Simulated assay, not measured.
Amino acid sequence: MPPETDLPEAEGPLKRDLIAGLEKGLQVIEAFDQERSRLTISEVAQRTGLTRAAARRYLITLAHLGYVRHEQKLFSLTPKVLRLGQSYLHSARLPRIVQPLLYRLAYSLEEAASAGVLDHDELVCVAAVSAGRVVSATLQPGTRVPAFCTANGRVLLASLPQQEIEALLARLQPEQITSFTIVNKERLLLEVARTRAQGYAIVDQELELGLRTIAVPLRNFRGDTVAAMNISVHAARMPVEEIIERCLPPLLKAQVELAALL
């Protein structure tokens, strides 16, 4: 048996070591989203780059396994797909370690707290506590939102090498989600640089009207940024100056505590 570390990380795995069927099956699952929760075989083929015959076979297989349901000519995902995300949330160290600190933050401040990681251009929430205040539907484990207009996302972008940040923004087509959303790429670069310099990010209603968020990076004992953690408040209840005064100190305290655990 070849050693587990026989693949150079910079070059990625060899093509012969990849299972194309698994890759394409996951692409079929990812073809479904909030805008198109029900798809025909032709639509799945178009979204995945598969032939119609291949898309049909993958959908039939996924339906047989219970991940997809078939109603007339339309296919949709079943709740069984959630098992894939639950496997990560139940097995990964990060959510288990962060969750108790989020509880403490959320209930001491009586605000919502969450932690997230970067996945390509998106921020994925991996843990969250509402403390009785439901300020946004996006603050739920498994939720994906654009990284460029979120506090956690900007903190994580600020941890990347400058070349990667510029490459990400070059391919990004920022959407004007609210009237506050920053879509100018030069200004976004300045915001990421500001976040890196000050050690935290504040995003004021750029993702959702009424949602104001402050975030800090979560670093491991080596100093590598592995996640981000935030506090979210209703904008009508807390101005920017107050969110810095009230929420930043406990966030920084939790940041120090978590560095010894991550």
Score class of each variant (00 low, 15 high):
1 M>I: 11
2 P>F: 11
3 P>S: 15
5 T>F: 11
6 D>Q: 14
10 A>I: 09
11 E>P: 00
16 R>S: 14
19 I>L: 12
32 F>L: 02
36 R>Y: 12
41 I>L: 09
43 E>R: 10
43 E>K: 12
45 A>S: 09
46 Q>M: 01
47 R>A: 15
47 R>Q: 13
50 L>R: 02
57 R>L: 11
57 R>M: 06
66 G>F: 11
70 H>A: 10
71 E>F: 09
72 Q>C: 02
72 Q>W: 09
73 K>Y: 06
75 F>N: 03
80 K>S: 02
82 L>G: 12
82 L>M: 13
83 R>G: 06
88 Y>L: 08
101 L>W: 11
103 Y>Q: 07
108 S>M: 04
112 A>Y: 02
120 H>V: 12
126 V>R: 01
126 V>H: 03
129 V>E: 08
137 A>K: 09
139 L>Q: 07
142 G>P: 04
143 T>Q: 11
147 A>Y: 06
148 F>N: 03
150 T>C: 04
150 T>V: 05
156 L>H: 04
158 A>M: 05
162 Q>N: 09
167 A>E: 10
173 Q>H: 13
177 I>P: 05
189 L>M: 13
195 T>Y: 02
199 G>Y: 03
202 I>V: 15
204 D>V: 04
207 L>T: 01
213 T>F: 05
222 R>E: 15
223 G>D: 02
227 A>P: 06
229 M>G: 10
233 V>M: 03
237 R>P: 00
238 M>W: 02
245 E>T: 12
245 E>S: 10
248 L>H: 10
252 L>Y: 01
254 A>W: 00
256 V>S: 10
256 V>W: 13
